[in-house]
Amino acid sequence: MKKLFLLLLCFISFNLFAQRQARLSENSEISLITVAPGNELYSNFGHSALWVEDRENGLSVVFNYGTFDFDTPGFYMKFVRGKLDYMLSAGRISYLVNAAKAENRSVYQQKLNLTVAEKNSMYAFLIENIQPENRFYKYDFFYDNCTTRLRDIFELTLGDDLEWNRKAEGYTFRYFLDIYLAEKPWQDFGIDLVLGQPTDKIATKREEMFLPDMLMYHVDAATNNGKPLVEQEKMLFEAEKKTEEAGFTILPIHLTWLICILGVIFSIRYYKVGFNDRIFNVILFFITGLIGCLIFFLWFLSDHLATVNNWNILWAFPLNVVFAFLLFKKPAKKWHTLYYAVFGIVCFMLLGFFYTLPQQLHAAALPIVLYFTFKSFNLLYRTKKMNV
Results as ranks from 00 to 15, higher is better:
172 T>I: 01
184 K>A: 09
197 Q>E: 14
130 I>F: 13
154 F>D: 03
125 F>W: 14
229 L>V: 00
153 I>C: 10
169 E>P: 04
234 K>F: 10
149 R>W: 04
202 I>W: 12
235 M>A: 09
209 M>I: 03
208 E>F: 04
122 M>F: 02
137 Y>T: 00
154 F>Q: 03
197 Q>Y: 05
187 Q>C: 03
229 L>P: 07
234 K>D: 12
154 F>P: 00
130 I>G: 03
176 F>T: 09
194 V>T: 06
190 G>R: 11
218 H>T: 06
231 E>M: 13
224 N>P: 06
133 E>T: 08
218 H>W: 08
202 I>C: 11
201 K>S: 14
128 E>W: 13
200 D>C: 02
233 E>R: 15
230 V>R: 07
228 P>V: 10
143 Y>F: 12
147 T>K: 05
129 N>D: 09
237 F>P: 01
167 K>R: 14
218 H>P: 00
188 D>Y: 12
180 Y>C: 07
236 L>I: 00
133 E>L: 01
159 G>W: 11
210 F>C: 05
138 K>T: 13
168 A>M: 15
157 T>W: 08
124 A>D: 13
145 N>G: 05
167 K>F: 08
180 Y>R: 04
199 T>E: 11
163 E>T: 12
153 I>P: 01
212 P>A: 09
145 N>F: 02
163 E>S: 14
168 A>R: 11
167 K>A: 14
155 E>C: 05
162 L>H: 12
137 Y>M: 01
208 E>A: 03
131 Q>I: 01
230 V>Q: 10
